[in-house]
Computed example of a mutant assay.
Amino acid sequence: MELPEGFRRQGEHKSAHDYSLFTLHQGDDIVVFLVYVDNLFLTGRNAELIDATKNKLHQQFKMKLTTLEYDQSTGARGDELLSDISFYQRLMGKLMYGTITRVDINFAVQTLNQFMQHYKGSHWDAATRELKVLITLPISVFSDSNSAIQLANNSVFHKRTKHIEINCHFIRDKIKSGLIQAVHVQTHDQIADLLTKGLSQAQHAHLLGKLGVLNIVHPAA
């Protein structure tokens, strides 16, 4: 990225190590801004210098307003900026972890993640709604062993379970609380076998089909 001539004359410098990293020095103050595709990260110690840099960028480039700046420019009211960012950051951390297994909330979480430093009431409400989605929907764990399912649902401790690892008891507690639901599946349809067993070519192809994996080199006739 090349800065306009006016920027270079006013003291901005381009990093020799990262061509998308720029710095502005004025006395003891510094402003650092990093450009990635169509996103820009701006930080520094002097709030007035940061605002001045943003104004320069607005003059030279077409830039989107933040939600706060948009409200200020349009005079919108009723969705105020919240002061304590720690609650929002902790909540977003939990939601980002949840996207590992719940890809359906990934877009919403990544969008809300853009407001980690300056979030409003509407962002908090949207984040808590996504959290409710994670809490209210049980996670299904599929097993082709009826014995394992019965043992997982049986909260009675007896001699046959005394050597079970502690993490298995943790799973059983989550089943009891309703967070996890153990579901029986026929061995022929157990997708996990793809990673744990040596399968025949026909069975391997059958399970790949359940995952929606297709061979683009040799498509099915």
Results as ranks from 00 to 15, higher is better:
Ile135Glu: 12
Leu42Ser: 00
Leu82Tyr: 01
Ser145His: 05
Phe7Ile: 04
Phe61Arg: 07
Val109Phe: 02
Val213Arg: 15
Lys162Asp: 10
Lys64Met: 02
Val156Ile: 07
Gln72Trp: 02
Leu81Arg: 01
Ala148Cys: 13
Pro219Gln: 12
Gln150Val: 02
Lys174Ala: 09
Ser122Ile: 06
Ser73Arg: 15
His188Thr: 12
Asp79Gly: 08
Lys197Cys: 06
Leu112Gly: 05
Gly6Met: 08
Ile175Ser: 05
Asp173Gly: 12
Ala47Tyr: 00
Leu65Glu: 09
His118Phe: 12
Ser147Arg: 14
Gln190His: 08
Asn153Ser: 06
Leu151Val: 12
Phe7Gly: 01
Ile30Gln: 15
Ser86Ile: 09
Ser20Glu: 15
Gln110Lys: 06
Asp38Val: 13
Val37His: 07
Thr196Phe: 04
Thr43Ser: 13
Lys14Asn: 08
Thr74Phe: 00
Glu48Phe: 04
His188Val: 08
Asp79Lys: 04
Phe7Tyr: 13
His163Thr: 11
Leu95Arg: 05
His169Leu: 09
Ile180Val: 13
Lys162His: 13
Ala126Ser: 14
Val32Asp: 04
Phe7Trp: 12
Glu69Asn: 05
Asp18Glu: 15
Tyr119Cys: 05
Gln59Val: 01
Ile85Ala: 04
His169Thr: 07
Gln203Trp: 00
Leu65Met: 10
Gln186Arg: 14
Asp189Asn: 12
Asp173Gln: 15
Tyr88Gly: 00
Phe107Cys: 03
Gln186Val: 06
His218Phe: 15
Ala127Asp: 01
Glu165Asp: 13
Gly75Lys: 03
Thr43Glu: 01
Gly178Met: 11
Leu211Tyr: 08
Asp193Ser: 07
Ser143Thr: 08
Phe142Thr: 03
Arg45Gln: 10
Ser200Thr: 15
Asp29Ala: 13
Gln181Ile: 08
Glu48Leu: 10
Val103Ile: 07
Asp125Asn: 10
Leu151Ser: 04
Leu91Ala: 05
Lys197His: 04
Tyr88Ser: 00
Ile50Asp: 02
Lys62Ala: 03
Met96Ile: 15
His13Ile: 12
Val185Pro: 08
Leu112Pro: 00
Gly11Tyr: 10
Thr161Ile: 10
Asp28Pro: 06
Gly44Tyr: 02
Gln10Arg: 15
Thr67Trp: 01
Asp193Met: 05
Lys210Gln: 14
Thr196Ser: 09
Gln110Asn: 12
Lys159Gly: 01
Val31Thr: 09
Val183His: 03
Arg9Met: 09
Ser86Arg: 13
Asp193Pro: 05
Asp104Trp: 05
Ile85Met: 00
Ser122Ala: 11
Ile139Gly: 01
Phe33Ser: 10
His123Asn: 09
Thr111Gly: 03
Val32Ala: 15
Asn153Gly: 08
Ile100Thr: 07
Thr101Ser: 14
Glu165His: 10
Lys210Trp: 06
Ala16Glu: 09
Ser73His: 14
Val141Pro: 09
Ser83Lys: 07
Gln10Tyr: 08
His25Met: 13
Leu68Lys: 10
Phe87Thr: 03
Leu195Val: 04
Ala16Gln: 14
Ser145Arg: 07
Gly11Asp: 00
Asp38Gln: 09
Gly27Arg: 15
Asn146Trp: 11
Leu42Tyr: 01
Leu207Trp: 11
Asp28Trp: 07
Leu214His: 14
Gly11Phe: 05
Asn46Glu: 02
Leu194Ala: 01
Leu81Tyr: 00
Thr111Asn: 03
His204Ala: 07
Arg8Gln: 06
Phe107Leu: 06
Ile149Pro: 01
Ile166Gln: 10
His184Lys: 10
Glu69Arg: 02
